[in-house]
Design a protein around this nucleic acid. Sequence first.
DNA 1: TTGTAAGCGTTATCAT
DNA 2: ATGATAACGCTTACAA
Lengths: 351, 351
Amino acid sequence: MPQAPREGPVASIKDVAQLAGVSVSTVSRVLSGSPRVDEGTRARVEKAIARIDYRPNLLARGLRSKSGNVIGLVVPEILHETFAAFIKYAERFCVEKGYDLVVGNTGGRPETEGAFIDNLLRRHVDGIIFSRVSDRSRVINTVEKWNVPAVIIDRALDRESLPTVVLDNERAGVIAAEHLVALGHRSIGVVTGPRDIALSRERHRGFAGTLRRHGLSLPASHVLEGDFKFESGRAAARAFIETGLKVTAIWCHNDLMAVGALNTFVRHGVKVPGDVSLVGMDNTGLSEMVVPALSSVTQPFEEMCRQAVELVLAMRHGQRIGNRRVVVAPGLLVRESSAARPPAPARRPRR
Amino acid sequence: MPQAPREGPVASIKDVAQLAGVSVSTVSRVLSGSPRVDEGTRARVEKAIARIDYRPNLLARGLRSKSGNVIGLVVPEILHETFAAFIKYAERFCVEKGYDLVVGNTGGRPETEGAFIDNLLRRHVDGIIFSRVSDRSRVINTVEKWNVPAVIIDRALDRESLPTVVLDNERAGVIAAEHLVALGHRSIGVVTGPRDIALSRERHRGFAGTLRRHGLSLPASHVLEGDFKFESGRAAARAFIETGLKVTAIWCHNDLMAVGALNTFVRHGVKVPGDVSLVGMDNTGLSEMVVPALSSVTQPFEEMCRQAVELVLAMRHGQRIGNRRVVVAPGLLVRESSAARPPAPARRPRR
DNA sequence: TTGTAAGCGTTATCAT
DNA sequence: ATGATAACGCTTACAA
């Protein structure tokens, strides 16, 4: 007659052993799929496991094997769509590999970051994925001192001592510039991310270089520095307008700033793309919500997370990764906000 | 002379004991702040702890005390801003209380949800916060069977057997309706969430009831069902337009759908708020990015998370909570998308 | 193929 | 006030 599932105390490996009439080591062997176990025994053990709904205790297992079965993810701000994307995809691949994901929101504060890493260390974290690090040396020191697998995603520094997964940011700049140039634009502006972030400089290098290669100049007054937030996009657009809107196209280093710029343009009656073409970056959900829908340089978030998780686990399993750089490719999604340059009435009369 | 920090093996309580010349029990007592320890000894132990940079192992501690020092958060989709907000604030309050946050993205799939909970159980999770339960009985059964503290946030059912933290959704409907009525609107529409989600029904009850109380009718053709996603907002606006746009104001059960509706209206030359006023719900970041900025019924995400974490920890510490319902209040943020009803030309000639 | 036993780092009980 | 020791649940030599 079927016995009601046990109440209260959770079943342990001992209970399984007892029920199956074997020793705990045999149960452990079955659990780990060891070949050195009789098929009959294995069946009995498995039945016992199912019978009492046994699940190995991860704390005990981790204590013994020095692996907490977790991966940590450090982000500066969960409410930015790009970081939310990192959480989403990192979680997916972690779970796929049998790990749980612990997330830490640092707000860019080094102390918060430090405390979070500390906690991870205490639970024998199997790997940490950093997306943007506030204080480089500090993180790297901690990570190296404790010898925990770690990778940097998205925001890499110029000369990194940790493995990184990054977009080919220079190429992103090239793509944006080529697109705008192909559309016939000759006076082009850009709203960059903070200059002290390497990827901003790389994107800009690709962008400016491409313009130059096409014989186009990029005066300092056409490159505005933003901070990746909505407001700075608005401010940049305002600045462009106040100086007489000398550009017919603008690339923003992320969608959020592009949407900010669009906002200001719409409010000032500047037509997009009629008067000025606008291209964003990241291809976040936002880009198809606004009118006109935003053209955007894409960043393969999912792929980046897959690589990051794989890298960190490879390190965990002893592979020497060094400071390998995994570079993923940007793309281009043309929507409505970028179009051919309106013909200059004087110099190019229609037909 | 200062000794270099130890390499490789992490310091354990034993190392501290040895260095301080005491037993492990004494160190443990110092750690737990027991009063039964000599001040001199305490000082020596603390010095030793600092000296070798010792941090208690959470796995060992958890194994012993049956508390993994983690809280689990289950969400259906990380890339929805409201759920990202839950993650952000839940993380904040967890960390504040000394717990780590493990997040699980279920995509609404019961199996994924089940597997995630299973994993949490195996690490002696201290509490689980569910936002939206895909398959009611299953979660509740698991949670009750293993007697793990759990609370439901946001998406609660009518008669819940678990404690819940919810918005006063009926009141949200009242607020939206009162706002629109006060603006002079008399023909009003609504885009609801899925009818099989309790909060949609509650919001609608408050909304419809308020309209009725003001002597306004709400014909079935004016209430459209959405699914909380952008596209359904677009579809709803299209439907309103196709039937002749008989309404002068619309409330959407979330910002995403409102932005979708706005998108369609803008594309069809329908002026917002000139021709139709639009009010969203949740007051997400989106609402101030669009033009016109979206008026929205607010939901205090941070407060809700604070309550959820507190509840779950109270349960963890033995308090009997039963199926208590913590209800938080919605508010109203008027921006640009809602304005006074344009005077009907025929019936109310200007001046 | 299977079992015995040690040990992972803590906490808690019981002595001293 | 402090120390020895068992126990938490698991893995893994080492024996049988």
